[in-house]
């Protein structure tokens, strides 16, 4: 019965963490390019009081007596579905339709990956993120350029002063991963490659790598499904409650046993 107490405690801890994840998803439901997370649970090891299939004197035990020791949170999975597109008409807002990520040069030299295409120009005219980190490959738009267009295949064009025809200023690249769900979230809409995500596969938008295409003047909403998150929240709350009932039941049984000899 002491097992029941710890088992229920493991359930409560797991549901607490579940609620933390749901709260974070809901808090980011309006964050551009945010990918919702889902907490994965696993059952813990079992105590074999009677091992199934063990030989008894005359026959084999058809079913054992295995008592589970609770649950644990195993991993958070990043849900990689497409978010809705939101028109902003800002020429440097770019949404990705597909699986790719923009690459961002972080101040510490490492590369971050993001789906949030809220880009701006810095004082040199380079395309940067809201935090000022340059987008890779670096594309500089001269101060005298007008009518910046970004095609769905990532070609950046602008009309320079005194010229009739637009000239090509650069080509945006996207990255994908063998296992995008294994990317590590860094905050500020940035993700980082890990051993589990694998090495990035680079390519131009619209290519054969399945990177997706770009939409200029749009931002991608988060893919948080608020209704589902609320349902998950209710379930987490009820599961927490039922585990606390187990603790109460175990405690009651303890006190009864203590009162056997009156």
């Amino acid at each position: 019965m002491i097992r029941a107490l710890y088992t229920a405690a493991s359930g409560m801890t797991a549901q607490q963490m579940n609620l933390d994840t749901i709260a974070n998803n809901l808090a980011n439901s309006a964050t551009t390019g945010f990918r919702q997370l889902r907490l994965q649970f696993q059952d813990m090891i079992y105590q074999n009081l009677v091992t199934p299939g063990a030989a008894q004197s005359q026959s084999t035990v058809s079913a054992g007596l295995q008592i589970g020791l609770g649950t644990k949170s195993a991993a958070t999975e990043v849900i990689m579905t497409q978010g809705g597109l939101n028109q902003t008409s800002n020429p440097l807002d770019i949404a990705i339709e597909g699986a790719g990520f923009f690459q961002v040069q972080r101040p510490d030299g490492t590369i971050g990956y993001t789906r949030a295409g809220q880009f701006h120009l810095n004082n040199q005219g380079t395309i940067v993120t809201t935090d000022g980190d340059p987008v890779i490959p670096n594309i500089t738009i001269p101060a005298n350029a007008t009518a910046v267009t970004i095609t769905q295949y990532g070609v950046v064009n602008a009309t320079l002063l005194g010229q009739q025809n637009p000239s090509q200023l650069g080509q945006l690249q996207l990255a994908t991963f063998p296992n995008a769900g294994g990317l590590e979230s860094l905050g500020a809409n940035l993700l980082q490659a890990t051993l589990s995500s694998g090495d990035p596969v680079l390519g131009n938008p619209g290519g054969a790598e399945g990177l997706g295409t770009l939409q200029q003047g749009y931002l991608e909403n988060s893919n948080v499904d608020v209704v589902t998150q609320f349902v998950q929240m209710v379930l987490a709350q009820r599961a927490y409650e039922s585990n606390s009932k187990v603790i109460k039941a175990a405690d009651d049984m303890y006190s009864q046993i203590n009162n056997i000899a009156r």
């Binding site: 019965m1 097992r3 029941a4 107490l5 088992t7 229920a8 493991s10 359930g11 797991a14 549901q15 579940n18 994965q40 649970f41 696993q42 059952d43 009081l49 007596l65 295995q66 008592i67 589970g68 020791l69 609770g70 649950t71 379930l235 987490a236 599961a239 039922s242 585990n243 009932k245 187990v246 039941a249 175990a250 049984m253 046993i257």
Partner: peptide
């Protein structure tokens, strides 16, 4: 009484895993 305490352990494990994907409940 001992059997019921063991049954309580099993019921606790079932409830703790109510949100574990693919978990199969234990029926004692």
């Amino acid at each position: 009484l001992v059997a019921r305490t063991q049954a309580l352990d099993a019921a606790a494990a079932n409830l703790a895993n109510a949100q574990t994907p693919g978990y199969r409940a234990v029926r004692e």
